[in-house]
Design a protein around this nucleic acid. Structure first.
Lengths: 141, 141
DNA sequence: CCGAATCCCTAACGATACTG
DNA sequence: CAGTATCGTTAGGGATTCGG
């Protein structure tokens, strides 16, 4: 029940001084909006889940298959985070076997545009970036 | 000399099976552009460094002071990554004491727009998100 | 089918000390 | 000033196992 909040507390409530790992801010209660978002979409899986959910709602194992490569644990964790931030809704359909549907909320859908802008940038610059990397790696040796 | 590439190799060249940590893709050579970008801006400091560099070039310790909270090590690592991806240029001015100027490249500057879109979204939705979180946290207990 | 709990390894990070 | 090298800590994440 309240177990759900344990990871969450550690992640945002910051009861621990967190010496080993310190993100820029986001742990202080000072409202740094960009950090909030980056902490969410920065964790790699979130974006994939969101884009997977964009066409329409999906169930757990369905998502598990679609996202490809995600562990069941990370899918759970990611969905919890997204749910907590109000980006994804979780609907339990009591039946046998039980079904759970995940869907983007309005907020979640509104995030898709900024994400798309970023994806477009990524697409139109990937060759430049790959090239720069190769160049850099050559020079290093 | 070639030490620079060690971390880099581990990060993108993927010689190791990487069991402990597995990002979605980005380690396979399959071009997944969005992953490349997210791996870069997802690491928290990169975005701060980029936005700090946006107004104009800056030197190492100058950036160190401006970014606030970043360790000297992470600034180095972050700058190396950005340099490798061709987002930031590094210019050594031989003098005593030596000066090194970091500046956004054209590619780096072009990333600022997508970043701004994201930041704007973050700004206009932060209250909703914070609210959703509070709500979620209450329900959990 | 949908998850939560545990185990354990790895890499990311901060702190610190040292070099050109 | 502008870094590099080493060390210790810890959070992230895969694998696995158990519960409703």
């Amino acid at each position: 029940m309240n177990d759900r909040n344990m990871q969450v507390t550690t992640l945002a409530g910051a009861p621990a001084p967190a010496r080993g790992r310190g993100r820029p801010s986001a742990r202080e209660d000072l409202p740094c909006p960009i950090r909030d978002v980056l902490d969410r979409i920065g964790d790699a899986w979130s974006v994939l889940v969101i884009t997977t959910l964009e066409p329409g709602p999906g169930r757990f194992n369905q998502l598990r298959r679609q996202v490809d490569g995600i562990s069941q644990r990370m899918l759970t964790v990611t969905l919890r985070h997204l749910e907590r931030d109000g980006l994804v809704s979780r609907t339990v359909i009591p039946s046998t076997p039980p079904q759970v549907e995940y869907a983007l909320t309005d907020t979640g859908r509104s995030l898709c545009l900024p994400l798309k802008v970023l994806a477009d940038w990524a697409g139109s610059h990937q060759s430049v970036i790959r090239g720069a990397r190769r160049q850099y790696d050559i020079g290093g040796n």
